[in-house]
Design a protein around this nucleic acid. Structure first.
Length: 256
DNA sequence: CAGTTTATCCGCCAGT
DNA sequence: TTACTGGCGGATAAAC
């Protein structure tokens, strides 16, 4: 609970038993997070917890379809919509059943760091990138993530050009900003430092090459933009937790 | 692996 | 006054 006073995003999972009442100190902690502007999202029947804090009053919201009527009965102030996967009110979000919770989380990832990364996350989570049809018409009340500025575009460009020179001066010039301003904006928008993010992009690139080619490790390193295989190994160990060769072997064994 | 060089990051601050 | 920019220094981390 103490982390609720610092968290940027708070996610409330579903509760098994709607008859249980949530301790008031939990509700207060959540309410404080809401009040200081943290982004708070509920999944499935977690909407009941969020509703109990009063944060949903006057807003449109959703929950598991079997619980929707009960939510509307208990909290007349809430505009309950059982026909959508999730509802985005900007900093307050709710989602329907558990699977829709994944859609909601993917929506957050997409808004935060772009569609490119979101599609990767979706792939990792083995779920379709964007569910369409049926009840998939989600509602976006908030202005669509302000200017999904050029930082987002830069990220996808980096993702595709891992082997290029991605030093700070180069990227800053690319963006038409000074180095100082660029690193500041990057940090604010992406939540990570450029070097860190680039290292992870390069590791992803290397993983792809290791999965799908027979290129020598040294070659994989240079194609992925690492100065040497030593540098790649270093990052690989830190991020993936194994060595490039071990990764390739593990992958080829498991890929039928 | 250890030592050296280079790059990055971020607080600070003066200038729009 | 607030909101933003961008150079500087130097601790820190990465690359060699």
């Amino acid at each position: 609970l103490p982390s609720l006073s610092r968290a940027d995003t708070v996610i409330i999972p579903g509760m098994v038993d709607l008859g249980l009442s949530v301790p008031s100190f939990v509700l207060r902690a959540i309410r404080r997070a809401v009040d200081r502007g943290a982004r708070v999202a509920s999944i499935c029947t977690g909407a009941f917890v969020l509703a109990a804090t009063g944060a949903l009053d006057g807003l449109r919201a959703t929950t598991h379809w079997r619980a929707a009527a009960e939510l509307a009965r208990r909290y007349p102030e809430i505009d309950v919509d059982a026909g959508v996967l999730y509802v985005d009110n900007g900093s307050i979000l709710t989602s329907a059943g558990a699977a829709a919770g994944l859609d909601l989380c993917l929506h957050l990832v997409r808004n935060d760091i772009g569609a490119e990364r979101a599609s990767e996350v979706a792939r990792l989570a083995v779920m379709p990138f964007e569910r369409a049809g049926g009840q998939a018409q989600f509602i976006v009340h908030a202005p669509p993530a302000d200017d999904q500025t050029s930082i987002g575009q830069l990220l996808t460009w980096i993702e595709r050009n891992a082997s290029k020179d991605l030093s700070l001066p180069v990227l800053a010039r690319e963006m038409g900003m000074s180095i100082r301003t660029f690193s500041r904006h990057f940090r604010a928008k992406v939540g990570d430092t450029p070097a860190n993010w680039i290292a992870r992009a390069r590791v992803r690139h290397a993983q792809r090459l290791l999965e799908s080619t027979e290129l020598a490790i040294e070659r994989v390193a240079s194609e992925s933009g690492f100065g040497s295989s030593t540098v790649m190994r270093q990052h690989f160990a830190a991020i993936v937790g194994t060595t490039p060769l071990a990764y390739r072997h593990a992958f080829s064994r498991s890929a039928v």
